[in-house]
Design a protein around this nucleic acid. Structure first.
Lengths: 183, 183
DNA sequence: TCATGGCGTTTAATATAATTGTCAATTGCG
DNA sequence: CGCAATTGACAATTATATTAAACGCCATGA
């Protein structure tokens, strides 16, 4: 969603300066500078003012670059979606990407010492799998329990009851995947 | 631009509560409550998050109700666009409606005592006309000067040099019209 | 060469949106 | 009927966008 570049290109097309457009839209040149640099996300009201002043409709504005927009492929660590915030001994679940746009959900899970997901009876279609990246963790699936160390992994049907417990004194990190998403 | 109602109807359509949608979008229920009540204008980023979580595209969202949207007809005094802010003895120009969506531009002009537009040589196509609503003002057009009082008016070709001066000790208010717009 | 004016950017102050922690009203269940 | 859970709304705080006023840059011209 590179709104800044899009706005800038349209503005240039019409031969408008930031100040000219700002005056017409009832904003300031500084604001337009920030928006074009993607250093702020304008309110819908502000964007509407700008597009009205150009003029171009909201639908037009967004439609034109939804075609050219490539789906997001790469995610920096800070771009993960926090499902559970973690901290204070709680499990931290951080999802790769956003909501349910994909058939595959990948999580970065952190289990502090003593962390326990509890025996929740999750019952979704699909499969879950993961690999321990650091530390060790006790995994119980449908009654069977195993201690997995770094490099180990698991794979089971999502409908089976399962539980994760870190009984060690070291934080455990797991990368897991589900399909379809359960969150 | 009743974004609130639109968002609400789409959300209801999908059987989502404000809290559910908030969780998926990474916002809070309170925010959605405010947006749906049109008590705040969400940032483009926030709106995108919400629509992604539903999911529906920005273009789709805006296109659907741009059809049903009726052009704005009525304007409250505070909705006028300030062309020159006025204050400190300066002329205040306030335009009915927004930028150049219309062939007709109507202004609410306030001239404090001593105010003077100066002999600017404006040279646009079209005509300008106005009626004095309160006070009195000296109008000079192409060399001819006249003092207009409340109820009086003027009409001239935009290409003629013109000047407005309030030589009285009372604030003068004029309602004027231009076609096509010069701002 | 030095002013002048227009451009886009940056910054501190201000206005506005978003969050957090409630609330009363509603819904579903025992 | 209560009781618990869930809903949308609200007030106070926090976070963010927007403003207004600077800045540096580049062109133009005296």
């Amino acid at each position: 969603m590179d709104i800044g570049a899009k706005l800038k290109s349209i503005r240039k097309e019409r031969g408008l300066s930031q100040r000219e457009l700002a005056a017409k839209a009832g904003l300031t040149n500084g604001t337009i500078s920030l928006i074009e640099a993607n250093r702020t996300s304008p309110s819908v009201a502000s964007l509407k003012s700008l597009l009205d002043a150009i003029p171009i409709s909201m639908a037009e504005f967004f439609s034109t670059f939804e075609d050219t927009e490539t789906p997001k492929v790469f995610y920096k660590a800070h771009e993960f979606t926090e499902i559970t915030p973690g901290g204070d001994g709680a499990v931290s679940l951080r999802q790769l990407g956003k909501a349910e746009h994909h058939a595959l959900q990948v999580l970065h899970e952190t289990y502090p010492p003593g962390a326990d997901t509890g025996p929740e009876a999750i019952s979704h279609e699909g499969e879950e799998a993961g690999i321990v990246v650091r530390g060790a963790i006790d995994v119980t699936v449908d009654g069977q329990t195993s201690t997995l160390n770094a490099g180990d992994g698991y794979l089971f049907d999502s409908r089976l009851p399962h539980r994760f417990r870190n009984t060690s004194d070291e934080t455990c990190v797991v990368v897991s995947a589900c399909t379809p998403p359960t969150f």
